[in-house]
Design a protein around this nucleic acid. Structure first.
Length: 412
DNA sequence: TCTGGGGTCCTAGGACCC
DNA sequence: TCTGGGGTCCTAGGACCC
């Protein structure tokens, strides 16, 4: 790849919580946490005040309250976050077309080609920070480095409202004592494996014989060593250059554990409709449907998939496939969570089938999609879903949801 | 009072075909 | 009767990211 790139990584600080604090002055300076609307929900994001008491993303609400009794809980407003996020991403496009939306609150920018126009990368970073603060009243941390790996590392070094630059000549000094788990891509498990080899810092990882890493971790071993040296050639991919999506799925933790087939089918129909609608919106069809089940005990779960004879995207076809899979398993406990996913995708519109009955299904689906696109999800839906109106399950927004493009999900 | 949801990537074994 | 190997597709499961 090209030498001497300049990459920015922008990380919105405690994004959802900051947006809430900006909108409601009564929340400022206080420990708050954003949660989902359902009974079985977790902490999605917490303010820095709450983090100081030990509140973390993913914690159960009761657990967070135990760490921080004065914690203020705010039910997340997903539309507000996706809107704010996409406006911020648009600002970035004012500097370079090479903006990669990494999640709802993170993005990379390749500013190599526009440095002269704006003076310097630092200058771009300061301008962007000021614009985001002025418009939305929130802060971000920005990292500047020669590649994405290091830019992401840099943005993580000063929070909130930080600006950290890693210059090419500083890389080995910065990495020498840095714990390997600070690298994006080395999680807890990998960290443990590497520690068993006597590797705890990036410096050690970079010097470790690549042959041993390759033997132990396969292809991953190769990048691992490069990561230890701070090397990363991966380009910043704008929305147009991004890889096409590989799967579309939905899952939900149910309000309560269920064990009747009738109830399970109702949820499957709802999930299939959500998956199908999103797949159709993106113009994708898929060959494989998977069903995911988590049992009441939380620890036991399984996924099962089946490839279909054809590529499908109609909710009804997805639903039937999911039910066929369900019929091959014997459920051992009440069900806590259900998920439906369409994989093995082909990026092409559905072809109109030959037979009248099938044609009618396509037309009916299109008509439903149009109404729902205009008036909101589940305005028109299958009869079976009307038995218990309204949305069920948790509908917690995930910070990994992309505000733009293929991974956009509308909820709430 | 327990414990969310959207993805990607990799591995491994078996079926099946040439 | 015996022998081998490559390629593709399928399913299952786990690690990792936000």
């Amino acid at each position: 790849m090209t030498a001497n790139r300049t990459i920015l990584h922008i990380d919105m600080n405690a994004f959802f919580a900051s947006v809430e604090q900006a909108i409601n002055p009564a929340l400022r300076g206080k420990p708050i946490a954003v949660i989902g609307s359902a009974h079985r929900t977790v902490i999605t994001t917490s303010s820095y005040e709450a983090r100081k008491c030990g509140v973390k993303t993913g914690m159960a609400v009761w657990e967070a309250k135990r760490c921080c009794p004065e914690l203020i809980l705010v039910v997340g407003n997903n539309r507000r976050y996706t809107h704010t996020s996409s406006e911020i991403m648009k600002m970035m496009l004012d500097y370079t077309p090479l903006v990669e939306v990494f999640s709802i609150d993170e993005a990379f920018m390749d500013v190599t080609g526009c440095l002269r126009l704006f003076g310097s990368a630092e200058n771009i970073a300061y301008r962007l920070k000021a614009r985001i603060r002025n418009r939305f009243g929130i802060t971000c941390s920005i990292g500047i480095a020669p590649n994405k790996l290091l830019a992401k590392l840099a943005s993580d070094m000063r929070k909130p409202d930080g600006l950290t630059i890693i210059k090419a000549e500083e890389i080995s000094r910065v990495l020498e004592k840095l714990p390997i788990t600070d690298l994006c891509g080395v999680g807890k498990r990998m960290g443990r494996h590497l520690r068993l080899l006597g590797i705890t810092t990036c410096g050690e990882l970079g010097r470790f014989p690549v042959a041993i890493l390759k033997k132990k971790f396969g292809i991953v071993g190769e990048y691992l060593q490069r990561m230890g040296k701070g090397l990363d050639d991966s380009p910043v991919l704008s929305a147009e250059d991004a890889e096409p999506v590989k799967s579309v799925g939905h899952s939900m933790t149910l309000e309560r554990d269920i064990d009747t087939r009738e109830e399970i089918l109702r949820y499957l129909l709802q999930l299939s409709e959500m998956v199908g609608r999103r797949a159709r919106r993106y113009g994708v069809t898929g060959k494989t449907v998977s069903l995911y089940v988590r049992y009441a005990d939380f620890d036991t779960s399984f996924g099962k998939q089946q490839s279909q004879g054809d590529y499908i995207s109609l909710s009804d076809d997805i639903y039937r496939a999911a039910v066929r899979i369900l019929d091959t398993v014997h459920l051992e406990q009440p069900v806590r969570l259900l998920g439906v996913r369409l994989t093995n995708l082909r990026h092409r519109k559905v072809q109109l089938p030959l037979f009248l009955e099938e044609k009618m299904k396509v037309f009916a689906t299109q008509a439903m999609d149009e109404v729902n696109n205009r008036y909101g999800d589940f305005t028109v839906t299958f009869g079976a879903l009307l038995a218990s109106p309204g949305k069920k399950g948790s509908f917690v927004i995930s910070p990994a949801w992309r505000p733009d493009g293929i991974r956009c999900v509308d909820v709430g």
